[in-house]
Computed example of a mutant assay.
Amino acid sequence: MSLILIIEQILNGLQFGVMLFLMAAGLTLVFGVMGLINLAHGSLYMVGAFAAAAVAGATGSFVLALIASLAAAAAAGAIVELVVIRRLYARDHLDQVLATFALILIFSEGTRWLFGSFPLFLEVPRYLSGPVTLPGGIQYPLYRLAMIVIGLLIAAGLFWLIARTRIGIQIRAGECDREMIAALGVDISKLYTLVFALGAALAGLAGALVGAIQSVQVGMGEPVLILAFVVIVIGGIGSIKGALVGALLVGLTDTLGGVFLPRFFELFLAPASATSVGASLASMLIYILMAAVLLVRPLGLYGGRT
Rank of each mutant, 00 (worst) to 15 (best):
A56K: 05
A68S: 09
I85T: 05
A51F: 04
L105H: 08
G42C: 04
M46F: 12
V80G: 02
T59D: 11
S61T: 10
A65T: 01
I104H: 01
A54R: 13
A72W: 07
V84I: 15
G48H: 04
L44P: 06
A68L: 00
A51T: 11
A65I: 00
M46P: 06
G48M: 10
Y89N: 10
I79P: 01
I67R: 00
A74N: 05
Q96N: 14
L105I: 15
A102R: 03
A75Q: 04
V84H: 04
S43F: 04
V83Y: 01
A102S: 15
A68Q: 03
A51D: 06
L66T: 05
L105R: 03
T100Q: 10
L98S: 09
D92A: 12
G77T: 06
Y45I: 06
L44S: 09
G60M: 12
V55G: 01
A53F: 13
L66F: 00
Y89Q: 06
V47A: 10
F50Q: 06
L98A: 14
A56M: 11
F50S: 01
D95H: 14
A58P: 06
V80E: 13
H41T: 13
A72C: 11
A75G: 09
D92Q: 11
V97F: 09
A58N: 08
H93R: 11
G60Q: 13
A75N: 00
S69D: 02
A40Y: 06
A40M: 01
I85R: 02
F50L: 02
A74L: 07
L44R: 01
D92E: 14
L94E: 14
F62C: 07
A49P: 12
A78L: 14
L88P: 12
G77N: 02
A78T: 07
S69G: 15
A40F: 08
A53W: 10
F50Y: 15
V63A: 13
L66Y: 00
A68M: 00
A72T: 07
A51V: 10
M46Y: 10
A40D: 08
A52I: 11
L105P: 03
L66W: 03
G60I: 15
A99W: 07
G60A: 10
L64P: 01
L82R: 15
M46A: 15
V47Q: 02
L44H: 09
L103H: 04
L39C: 06
A49K: 01
L44C: 07
V84K: 02
A75F: 13
I79K: 00
A56G: 11
L70C: 06
H93M: 14
S43W: 05
A53D: 00
F101N: 12
A78S: 04
N38Y: 02
A99F: 05
A72N: 11
A90Y: 07
A56N: 09
T100R: 12
G48C: 05
L64D: 04
A74F: 12
A75M: 05
L94R: 13
I67T: 12
A75S: 12
V83L: 12
V84W: 04
Y89I: 14
